[in-house]
Write a protein that binds this DNA or RNA. Structure first.
Length: 858
RNA sequence: GCCCUCGUGGUGAAAUUGGUAGACACAAAGGACUUAAAAUCCUUGCCGCUUGCGGAGUGCCAGUUCGAGUCUGGCCGAGGGCACCA
């Protein structure tokens, strides 16, 4: 469509911007010219990585936001002259494929591969600057072959081991359930009550690195504090001591070991509590009452109700535990539901006066509650009454500990005493548990292990890798699919008949090293080459959702350490130098009169206040709060449709515009629309400028230089700090400025030089539009991120705020860099300020150069 | 319960880190251009009086400071994380 646009008596004839043709053209161009292909070079590198997606079939707005943020950074760094690595891959093992396969009688591999193709096409439509030559997919044998090698490597280093552990077992489906598949204690598909079952499973010894993983958080300066705090809490370091309690009342049991962080409260000792899984429970297994109690315990913790109540219950034994600090102090021993076997020793000593749990327990079973710590402002007769005193204070009723400050003096003094008298030992504990990696699933990386006739572990020899998943045409619901593959399971190793391990690896293993694989994505022999790692790693900027704050990021940190452990030529400790966690994309939710969720497509409104069903435009729709887009609430917006309707640049522009990237952003039609208009407007502006280029202008205009430099300075600062919403705001200002400029006399050279810079800084945000504009206006010129003229920014004129007694009274425009006296002189000559000076004298002056002057009058 | 983060117009948000509060955008109202529409552009936005000016104002209450959205203490509210971790 060709139309005339009249501006201030000048006529321009311009084409409207056809994003479909132009975006397509540039995407093709980038691909054909290998624009984003990366290789090891001498230049300074920048590794920009976004968390790779699970190939569910369609990209969602969360992906659009994630990958747009990453692409802005990658393109910016590239224009700055960095050698950028910006790869993409697929986290393609996992349960959705298996579920989809069962439901629709499909092959998980075919399902996954089709999804990958569909999503790849969508990602390409976004115009991302990705090096597709490095594409990887974790479900491909080409990938997991190396993972199996790494597994065996860690096994050789003693970082992998096997032990019995509990799983959620669905007795109807005869399958193991993931935690999220257990809903209210029942299997999500069968509805059967989930049982705890003990299985032999593989573990990574992540606990070996607890201290290192904790300590090194301090060095991750470019990580959000929030994530670091979460990991710190997760690792859960605590200082305390272990104490051996002597036991009376049994021939077999002589002592029980406890871990405590509060040994100083030993004189408040009231009971000793054991986990039902404690080794000593074997002495009670024949007791029907204990059996019943144990059953009761395994039920609590899964249903919402029991968590809400969280009642403390116990089973009293006939044993007595002796206080190590007072031989005459003997207390009962219980099994209790609140003691966990996998922390400490599965045994705790109870001091109800100074611990909430112990207090609740003691109240229920009428146990002794002694007070051994008083708050600093209370006297020695202080007694714990309706609630325990868990805070700091002073020791009382504790013999040689009396008067000590709690906790800073009391704990260390007690531990010293216990150690000296061989009653206990100082100990640091971590909450972090070893990582269970066995999954009784089909669609995952096979564990490269077999067992001989004696059930001894045999490694699959490297020459026989990969252990390829057998192709199973129809997945049954019973048990672990690989367990039923008789042919596949049988394997001969070194002449010995063996049976393969039928568990597959947790998919978190797949994503714990994929960033290393990207560095040598096409190497067939090794997972990665050290020279590639040395050049590209660590990832300079990792970008993804906050939901991975703990597991994925901690596992990746562990995995890199595990590879480095006992290795001569691998020198990496932390995989991600910078981390950025983006917010979610939200949308209003809608429900019809039957409380059924409605999608935005089904809703109609002409005033933005009252909403109706689109089909009849009558039935009132209830508008709910804006929530993160999810299929279950049906408040999703399909990115493909948006790109189709508005173009990739508009969508990118909008997803960046409204909120800072780390916060949630609201999707709004009007916002999307306005971004679309902006792209169109900018194109018209560009066309007008293009035509001016052909005319002659004379007057110089230094305002353009100043404005351009200031704007780019703002954009630089915003880019470096992930304030991408500010960049969009600056571009709105830029448009307004240049558009206005067209009404004035412009100097040709001046405009040409500055406008080029504007187009270059537009490239990361709207790459198609910017590329097209640059090609039209500057066909043969080099494209490099513009440098700023710093002197120019510190402009010759400053606006200075004049405050009288701390209140703003005026703004004066003066020359920059003036001293205080000169400014004062100007102010005194300013008649509009006279009224403030009447009959008053300047008592004090505060002057901040080029910014503010504050006059204190008396 | 414990830990963390955040409270700025009708809305999403800016604010060079202690120095002009509300940039930019959405929504609303009014206007310009146009035969009309689309597109584009401009103005307004709390209180008081007459244009202009003055006043209040960043959840609430104190404090530090010439000066506080920003720093300190207390309170209120919202969101997130962990959950019997001994």
């Amino acid at each position: 469509m060709r139309q005339a646009i009249k501006i201030n008596l000048k006529e321009f004839f311009v084409e409207r911007y056809n994003f479909k043709i132009i975006e397509n053209k540039w995407q093709k161009y980038w691909l054909e010219n290998n624009n984003f292909k990366s290789s090891v070079q001498k230049d300074k590198k920048f590794y920009c990585l976004e968390m790779f997606p699970y190939p569910s079939g369609k990209i969602h707005m969360g992906h659009v936001r994630n990958y747009t943020i990453g692409d802005v950074l990658a393109r910016y760094k590239s224009l700055q002259g960095y050698n950028v690595l910006h790869p993409m891959g697929w986290d393609s093992f996992g349960m959705p494929a298996e579920n989809a396969a069962r439901q629709n009688n499909l092959n998980p591999k075919t399902w996954t591969e089709e999804n990958i193709q569909a999503m790849k096409k969508q990602l390409k439509q976004l115009g991302l600057s990705i090096d597709w030559d490095r594409e990887i997919s974790t479900c491909s044998p080409e990938y997991y072959k190396h993972q199996q090698k790494l597994f065996l490597n860690l096994y050789d280093k003693g970082l992998v081991y096997r032990k019995e552990s509990y799983v959620n077992w669905d007795p109807i489906d005869k399958t193991v359930l993931a935690n999220e598949q257990v809903v209210d204690g029942k299997g999500w598909r069968s509805g059967a009550i989930v049982e705890r079952k003990k299985l032999n499973q593989w573990f990574f010894k992540i606990s070996h690195f607890s201290e290192e993983l904790l300590k090194n958080l301090d060095e991750l300066n470019h990580w959000p504090d929030k994530v670091k705090t979460m990991q710190k809490n997760w690792i859960g370091k605590s200082y305390g001591c272990e104490i051996d309690f002597k036991i009376e009342g049994s021939d077999q049991i002589k002592s029980i070991k406890c871990y405590t962080t509060r040994p100083d409260t030993l004189f408040g000792f009231s009971f000793l509590a054991l986990s039902v899984d404690h080794p000593l429970s074997k002495f009670y297994e024949d007791n029907p009452e204990f059996k019943k109690f144990k059953e009761n315990c395994s039920k609590t913790g899964t249903t919402e109700e029991s968590i809400a109540q969280a009642e403390k219950i116990g089973f009293k034994t006939n044993l007595l535990a002796i206080n190590p600090l007072d031989k005459d102090d003997k207390v009962p021993v219980y099994f209790a539901n609140f003691v966990l076997m996998d922390y400490g020793f599965g045994a705790v000593f109870g001091c109800p006066g100074h611990d909430q749990r112990d207090f609740d327990f003691a109240k229920k079973y009428n146990l002794k509650i002694s007070t051994v710590v008083k708050p600093s402002d209370k006297d020695d007769n202080y007694v714990v009454d309706t609630e325990p005193h868990t805070g700091p204070g002073i020791m009382i009723n504790s013999k040689f500990l009396n008067g000590l400050k709690v906790p800073e003096q009391s704990i260390s003094k007690t531990i010293n005493y216990l150690e000296k008298n061989n009653l206990g030992k100082r100990k640091t504990n971590y909450r972090l548990k070893d990582w269970g990696i066995s999954r009784q699933r089909y669609w995952g990386c096979p564990i490269p292990i077999a067992y001989d006739e004696n059930n001894e572990v045999i490694k699959i020899p490297e020459k026989d890798l990969p252990v390829v998943l057998p192709n199973i045409e129809k997945l049954g619901t019973d048990g672990n699919p690989l367990d039923n593959e008789k042919k596949w399971k049988a394997v001969t190793i070194n002449g010995k008949k063996c049976t393969r391990e039928t568990d597959t690896l947790d998919t978190f293993v797949d994503s714990s090293w994929y960033f290393l694989r990207f560095c040598s994505a096409n190497n067939k022999d090794v997972p990665f080459k050290n020279e590639d790692i040395n050049y590209w790693m660590p990832v300079d900027q990792y970008i993804g959702g906050i939901e991975h704050a703990i597991l994925h990021l901690l596992y990746s940190r562990f995995f890199v350490r595990a590879i480095e452990h006992k290795s001569d030529n691998f020198n990496l400790k932390e995989p991600f130098k910078g981390l950025f966690t983006q917010g979610m994309v939200c949308h209003q939710t809608y429900k019809d009169k039957n409380n059924k969720w409605l999608s935005p497509d089904e809703v109609y409104s002409d005033n933005g206040k009252d909403f109706f069903k689109k089909e009849n435009r009558k039935e009132i729709v209830k508008v709910g709060p804006s929530e993160s887009m999810s299929k279950s609430k049906r408040n999703t917006i399909d990115p493909e449709k948006m790109i189709e309707a508005y173009g990739a640049d508009s969508v990118r522009f909008f997803i960046l515009s409204d909120s800072p990237p780390e916060k949630d952003v609201q999707w709004s039609d009007s916002g999307m629309n306005s971004s679309f208009k902006y792209i169109q407007k900018f194109w018209l502006l560009n066309e007008k400028i293009h035509q001016i280029f052909k005319k002659e202008k004379v007057k110089s205009n230094s305002e353009i230089d100043l404005f351009t430099n200031q704007s780019i300075n703002k954009i630089n600062i915003a880019l470096e700090n992930f304030r991408y919403n500010v960049i969009i705001a600056v571009f709105h200002e830029i448009y307004a400025f240049f558009n206005k400029l067209l009404n004035e006399e412009i100097n040709f050279d001046n405009l040409k030089e500055n406008y080029k810079k504007i187009l270059i800084v537009l490239m990361p945000v709207a790459p198609h539009l910017a590329s097209e504009c640059i090609k039209n206006l500057y066909p043969d010129e080099q494209i490099k991120w513009p440098l700023i003229d710093k002197k120019l920014i510190q402009s010759k004129k400053s606006n200075i705020v004049v405050q009288i007694n701390g209140k703003k009274r005026s703004i004066i425009s003066i020359e920059s860099n003036l001293d205080e006296d000169s400014v004062l002189k100007i102010i005194k000559n300013d008649s509009s300020l006279d009224k403030y000076f009447a009959e008053k004298k300047i008592f004090k002056t505060i002057y901040i150069k080029d910014r503010i002057i504050n006059l204190i009058l008396k």
